[in-house]
Every structure is written in C-alpha cells, then in structure tokens.
Nucleic acid binder design. Sequence first.
DNA 1: ACCGGCATGTAACGGGTTACATGATTTT
DNA 2: AAAATCATGTAACCCGTTACATGCCGGT
Lengths: 176, 176
Amino acid sequence: MDAKILCLGALTCGDASGYEIKKMFEDGPFAHFHQVSFGSIYPSLAKLCEQGKVTMRKEMQEGRPDKKVYTLTDKGNKSLYRAMKKTPAEDQLRSEVMVMFFLQEYLDQDHLHDVLDQQLNFYRSLSEKLEALDDDTVAPGRMFVRGLGRVLYRTLVKYMEENAHLLLNNKKRSNQ
Amino acid sequence: MDAKILCLGALTCGDASGYEIKKMFEDGPFAHFHQVSFGSIYPSLAKLCEQGKVTMRKEMQEGRPDKKVYTLTDKGNKSLYRAMKKTPAEDQLRSEVMVMFFLQEYLDQDHLHDVLDQQLNFYRSLSEKLEALDDDTVAPGRMFVRGLGRVLYRTLVKYMEENAHLLLNNKKRSNQ
DNA sequence: ACCGGCATGTAACGGGTTACATGATTTT
DNA sequence: AAAATCATGTAACCCGTTACATGCCGGT
C-alpha cells in the first residue's frame, strides 16, 4: 500500500489539500496507525491528478498561502476498491524507544529518564488527540478503528505510569 | 537506528547466528516492537565482523546446515553504548489492516471477514508467543518492555473480539 | 526579532525489502 | 509428495525520508 492509495483513502473523509492530508496522519483519524511525509504526499497527489483519480481546484486564501484542494473522482474510487481487494501487509511497528528500554543497561540514568519522559508525553499527546476527535461526523464502521486507537494509547500510558519503576530502579552500574 | 545496531542489541541476549537473530525479531524478545529481514541481518553481521564489533565461530551441526555463531566484543559493546546516547526516532506503526478497516465500506463483506480473522489470529499468535517467553532468564529492566508487549496484545485481542460487530454489521451497499 | 504554523514542491540519498540462489532434513 | 524448518547469502529495485528552497502572517 503506497502513498497514493493512502492519499485516496484520506480523501474519502472529504476534500483536502496535501497539507491537510498530512495533518490527518499526524493528529487526525489516521494518526495512530499510519504516517506519510510531505515528500511522498505531494508527488502522489500530482500523479493521481494526471491519472484522473482526483481533481484539483485552487483556493485563494487571505492572510495565508493559497491551497490546492483535491477531490476524489469515480476513477479514484474504483482504484480504491481495487486496492482493497489485496491482502494487506503485516502490521509493522518499529519503536527505537522500546529497543532502548530493552537495552536499558546501556543508557545512563539521565538519558533513560529523558527518553522515558518524552515517550510518555508522546503517548499522552497522541492519546489526547484521539480522544479529542469529533465522533459525530464519523461513519460507525470507522469508529472501530478509532476506538481501538483510544484503548491502545490509554493502555500504553497507564502501563508506563505504573511500571516506570521497573526501568529506573535496579541501576548498579549506571556509570558507563 | 540501523540493522547493525539492532544486531548488536540482539547479541546482548547471548551468542547467536543470523538465523537466530531473525527469530528473536519474529517470535522472541523483540517480536512486538521491531523487525528485521535476512537481507539486512546478514550484511550487517558481515560488516560488524570486519569492524571487530563481533567475532564469529563456525558450529558444525549434524543433520542440518552449519551455522555461524556471533559474539559481541568489547568494541561492539562500546558501539552500543554510543548508539544509545542518541535521541530515538519516533515510534512508527504502519498497519494496512487498520487502513482497510477504516475504509471498510470499500471492501466486500467476505474479504472484510477474512482480513478480520487473519488479523485476530495474527494478534493472538503474537500474544501467545509473548506469554510463552521464559521470564526467568531475563533481567528485571527488560521485563518492562515484555510486560508492555503482553498488555498491548491482550488489549488488542480483547478489543477486536468485543467490537468486531461495529465493522461487520451496518453493511448496506456491500455489493460494489 | 524570532519561531511556529500555513502552504507547496524537488532531488538525492540511503536503506531495507523482495526475489533469487542452494540444499538437506523433518514433518504432514 | 509437498511443505516447512534450518541455514546463509547477494543484488537490484523501490520507495520513503531528509534536506533544501521559498514566503507570508501572527504571536511571543
């Protein structure tokens, strides 16, 4: 599943610019299970336009840059249907922080502390973003995914708060 | 954090071959928070050997191929300490399955059912693998990460079992 | 005065994944 | 008889990330 399909998927939530699509993957409905960068969004959108899978209109704005708003076409919709027939790739999670926690004896106390704090903040803020999303405008089927994200990050925050001591104490040779 | 550091990290659990390292990322202690493929493990191990960060000995086996068992050296250890001083990259989770669930109106009923089943099995088997790991030989600090993995996958399985109906029912136009 | 947010885009670089190559043994 | 497990390796390809380029507005 490449960035093009992801963009089409994002546009099923309504017309959007590249910048807005990015936000959907940062704070919005996709935040907890996928990410894309500008470097892949903008070229994708351009190619989708060429292929007639989306249309673009320019929206002038006062006080801020103009934006290019993209709309899903029938062709784009069909493309999505086709993509959804495939077998999805396995989930992949890569957490360098967890690797660090696992190798906690290789970190000095201070840095471990920092990393732990930052990670907790990261999970907390993602959790808050997910809780803050407006559920009224969302189709019931989509709530499954949102609910899962919420439960997941709540669990993560709770576990880390309750078990941080496992990581911090038992430091005997923390002076490497 | 590249594959070389990951290999060094894996070797802190004890001497291992490339094949065994792969297993650590599939069923073992790293299973739930990172993955690496053979295509990156073998070249990494070769380079680490060149750099003197690991040593290699050949172990002949009867009835199966010989293996190359790698051992962490002092130099490798230092390299790990250095790597752990860096700021870790943000977690990244990419789940095509969740994208599909989100776009559930684009899947036909049967395929949705299949994907759901496969995902549940995937989470269940990962969960079981994590529960099955032997905790006696593991340093207390490392139990933090393992415990987190266990809680996470238990939560995931439970949520999916209890909320699958959100995804399956409300199918009115499932004939696209 | 400077930083963060809004807004779009390009290009190189790096890295990992995928596929290929090989082969014996055990399990189904 | 076929598939899975054990075991190692190479190389091309793809794709995404990172960094760069540009610019205005509002808040601190």
